[in-house]
Design a protein around this nucleic acid. Structure first.
Lengths: 187, 187
DNA sequence: GAATATACGGAGTGGGGACTTCGGATGGCA
DNA sequence: TGCCATCCGAAGTCCCCACTCCGTATATTC
């Protein structure tokens, strides 16, 4: 299923479907219909199901793609010279990203849940990358040392969910983040 | 629709349906089927629809009930002599409640959204009650004064959602709360 | 303990959405 | 340019679920 098709048009369609799916499921949650994805991608329903035999597999592929992006960002930030800002930047970026991406966050939330699926690899990798960011920030004295990855993960998911669901203006979001950042600072 | 039926058995069924619905929708989200509610309540599907002509109305009724409970709790805490602990207690209680109550949190999240429905009154009342708790806690010097109801609301929703979705052990949840509480403390 | 309004449940009905089928188009290659 | 494997899309099929119909049961009232 995940193998790249040989013909150019098929490759193009696959890519377009993935792109549109991220948009559609991001806006409407995982209950958005596959047909809508097909229509917006400009292909027939059958084409979607040929590339991704199941709606769940399509969702999985979207998530893998998304987590890849996040991981890359985290890894490049992990090489920063300023571990403190790097950590908080990433935190803020994830939260900013979250707005309107319901389904993706939903899946992110399930990180610890379905540990067996291939989709779970993304969250695990991301978790690890965040762990590196966190450890470096703690070593640099920018984050309190009595907390672990679990707590940070919970906060990350929580704020993301909140932002994705509430009509929150820029200022209020920044304030909420500030509160959490203050809570994360060393005692 | 919301009028109490005249016959005793009907009243009983109505109450049982509401109770079961809170449980079912809390566990399975708002996509759980009405038929399941009927089965677990020990009534026919038609009976559910007689009392609540629409699935949405049933959900609405469940939410109104739930928010009533939360409001009462908040209001009784608002009369406490210790405004600081009262505020943080309520915060913790809501979060503890959240585990497994997906649909209710979903609706809570929409507080600012559908301002017109009757169901929106619950969130508004709750918001107001939380506002009182917050103000009193701030006056007592237990909560920093540079934040408002919006930020608290965002945090409340966020943590609740996170707890409801992540498999989070008791300790990690307490830690995440601790971080937020620290962030809420005066500078 | 009958009469009657009220309430009940099971068997539909209709629509929507995931997934399949199959005849037709088309990119890749000689 | 022509062949053919690959890929495509429109029109289904099937199932699930919200919601309705109607004959039956029972709480209430006298």
């Amino acid at each position: 299923m995940a193998t790249q098709p040989t013909r150019a048009d098929a490759r193009g369609n696959r890519a377009r479907i993935l792109e549109v799916a991220e948009e559609v499921f991001g806006r409407g949650g995982s209950t958005a219909s596959t047909e809508k994805v097909a229509r917006l991608a400009g292909v027939g329903i059958a084409t979607v199901f040929r590339h991704f035999p199941t709606k769940q597999m399509l969702l999985e592929a979207v998530l893998v793609r998304h987590f890849d992006h996040l991981c890359q960002r985290a890894q490049s930030l992990a090489e920063s010279d300023d571990p403190g800002p790097a950590f908080f930047d990433f935190f803020g970026q994830i939260v900013a990203d979250a707005a309107g991406k319901l389904a993706i966050i939903e899946a992110f939330t399930d990180a610890g849940g379905d540990v067996d699926g291939k989709a779970a690899q993304g969250p695990r990798d991301l978790r690890e990358a965040v762990g590196v960011l966190l450890r470096r920030a703690q070593d640099a004295g920018a984050v309190r040392t009595d907390i672990g990855l679990d707590e940070v993960h919970a906060l990350l998911v929580g704020v993301s969910r909140a932002v994705a669901h509430i009509r929150l203006d820029e200022r209020a979001r920044a304030r909420a983040l500030e509160i959490i950042f203050d809570g994360l600072a060393p005692r």
